[in-house]
Structure formats: structure tokens, C-alpha cells
């Protein structure tokens, strides 16, 4: 009798443990499921269906496996590039035709003028005008990539560290090019020594080189973290509905999620601005440093 009771209790506790385990697993699954929307994947979702991208066999260069398969983020990278191209080219065409810009021409021009007058000229001076195409492309490309993530079924390519890494790599090259072009290669190398006694060079040169890399590295991480952060907050808020397992709680997380979404809209512009502004600032620093 005793054993049967114990057995019963054991069974009971077992079922309890089982159910709690299922609970835990389930709520974990919800997050894993929702986090898939942030992560890159080889499928693209459209309403009521999803497509697989054809796999491209990885190529091996210097021992690094490079998988050039088109992913969701590459796909949205291209969509963003396409939107940027259409919008800006249409704007340019319109502005060439009419004396007074209006509509889309005016919209694009507001950004162009702001970047020129408030970012490029204060940071880089008149010499910076020749880097305008690069900075403008950076701004509009990042902006559209950020914004497209707010569209349902869209994905934010900039919430992928590889994408921001690629952009930062270009920024790194542009910063060095701007400095070398302005100062000449000799001055540029001399600047790496920090102007200290030669005995300190073994310490100074690695520090300066490290300094060159930290700036774009910070650009990369800042953009990636900001764009990912907002999405994780939204996923967590929506996840609350599945954790509480009742639809009655939904209005609260959804209200918060809408608020975060509006914030994300602002962050999309802000991060595009910050990336452009800091790139311009770093280029400007490299261009000025010959004078000190």
C-alpha cells in the first residue's frame, strides 16, 4: 500500500516535472521561433508561403570557406539597393527637369543638402565634396535597409553583423584613402608613429594601427546592435503573449510593441545619420591631421 502511494506520488511528480519541462521547452521554442525572424536564413517568407534560395557550393579561398548562397539578408540588401537606386535616380531626373524641386526630388534633396551642409562641409571642409557620392550612398543604403525591416515580411539586413561589417570595411578603406590622398603616403605612414621618439615606435605603431581598426569596428557594432536591439525588444514583447498563453494580455504587449516600432522608425534614421556622420568625421580627421 505504501509502495503504491509512493508510486502514485512518484507518478504524479513525474507528470508535474514533465509538464513543466514541456512548458519550459515550449516557451523556449517560442523565442527560438521568433528569433528566426531576426536571424539570417536561406528561405524567404512571403504571405502564405516561403521560398528556398538555390544553394551555391561554397568556394575555398586561402583556407576560408566562403558560402555565396543568397540568403534573406542578401535578398533584402538587393531590394534596398534597388529602392535606393530607383528613388534617387527618379529624384535626380525630376530635379534636372524642373527649376523648383518638388515631391520626391525635394525629399531626396533635403537629405542631400543636409548631408552636404551639416555633415560633410563641417567635418571635411570643401575637399570633402568629392567624397559626397560615397557618403550619400552609405546614408541612403543604410536608411532603406533599416526601414525595410519595419515592413511586414521584411528583414533588416543591417541587423546582421556581416552586412554592417562589410559596410564598415568599405568605410575603413575610404577613411584610409581620404587620409592618404590628402597627406600623401609618406605623411600617412609618419602619422602612424604618432610623432614620438623612435624608441617608442614598437609600442606606438601597433597602438595607432589598432586605433585605425577600432573606429570602423565601432561603426559596425553600433549599427548592428542598434538594429538588432529594437527587434529583440519587439520579439520579447510579442513573446509575452505566448508565454501568458492568453489572448487577453495581447493589447498590452502590442501597445508597447507599437511604441517600440515608432522608436525603431526614429532609430532607423538616427543610425543611418550616425554611421554617415562618423565616417565623415573620421575621414575629416585623417584629412586634417597633416596640419598638427
Amino acid at each position: 500500500m505504501n509502495s503504491s502511494v509512493l508510486n502514485n506520488i512518484d507518478q504524479h511528480s513525474n507528470t508535474l516535472i514533465d509538464s513543466s519541462a514541456i512548458h519550459a521547452q515550449h516557451s523556449e521554442n517560442v523565442f527560438v521561433e521568433l528569433l528566426h525572424h531576426i536571424k539570417d536564413s536561406k528561405t524567404i517568407e512571403v504571405p502564405f508561403a516561403h521560398f528556398e534560395f538555390p544553394p551555391i557550393p561554397p568556394i575555398n579561398i586561402f583556407g576560408i570557406q566562403i558560402d555565396l548562397t543568397i540568403t534573406r539578408h542578401v535578398f533584402f540588401l538587393w531590394i534596398s539597393a534597388f529602392i535606393v537606386a530607383i528613388v534617387t535616380i527618379v529624384a535626380a531626373r525630376k530635379n534636372l527637369k524642373s527649376k523648383v524641386p518638388k515631391g520626391i526630388g525635394n525629399l531626396v534633396e533635403v537629405f542631400v543638402e543636409y548631408i552636404r551642409d551639416e555633415i560633410v562641409i563641417p567635418n571635411m571642409g570643401k575637399d570633402g565634396i568629392k567624397y559626397m557620392p560615397y557618403l550619400l550612398t552609405t546614408f541612403f543604403f543604410i536608411l532603406v535597409m533599416n526601414l525595410i525591416g519595419l515592413v511586414p515580411y521584411g528583414a533588416t539586413s543591417t541587423s546582421n553583423v556581416s552586412v554592417t561589417g562589410g559596410l564598415a570595411l568599405i568605410a575603413f578603406i575610404m577613411i584610409q584613402v581620404a587620409a592618404i590622398k590628402k597627406q600623401g603616403f609618406k605623411h600617412y605612414l609618419a602619422h602612424l608613429t604618432g610623432g614620438v621618439h623612435w624608441a617608442l615606435w614598437p609600442i606606438m605603431i601597433p597602438i595607432e594601427i589598432l586605433g585605425l581598426f577600432t573606429k570602423p569596428f565601432a561603426l559596425c557594432i553600433r549599427l548592428f546592435a542598434n538594429m538588432t536591439g529594437g527587434h529583440i525588444v519587439i520579439v520579447s514583447l510579442i513573446g509575452l503573449i505566448f508565454i501568458f498563453k492568453t489572448v487577453w494580455i495581447a493589447p498590452i504587449p502590442i501597445a508597447f510593441a507599437v511604441g517600440i516600432n515608432i522608436l525603431e522608425l526614429f532609430v532607423a534614421f538616427l543610425q543611418a545619420y550616425i554611421f554617415t556622420m562618423l565616417t565623415s568625421l573620421f575621414m575629416g580627421l585623417g584629412m586634417q591631421s597633416s596640419e598638427h
Binding site: Q65, T71, N95
Partner: peptide, 26 residues
């Protein structure tokens, strides 16, 4: 690395395209 390469290629193509057809006229 594949994504990094795609990003750079896309950016450069966009840059070349826009430099000629958008930024210069604008």
C-alpha cells in the same frame, strides 16, 4: 564571409550606379 562579400559588391555597384545617375545630377 559570403554575406560580407555580397554586401561589398552590392554597395560598390550601387555606388558606381548612383554616382553617375543620381548624385552627380542632384
Amino acid at each position: 564571409p559570403g554575406l560580407v562579400i555580397w554586401t561589398i559588391i552590392t554597395f560598390l555597384v550601387l555606388l558606381v550606379l548612383l554616382k553617375k545617375f543620381a548624385w552627380k545630377p542632384l
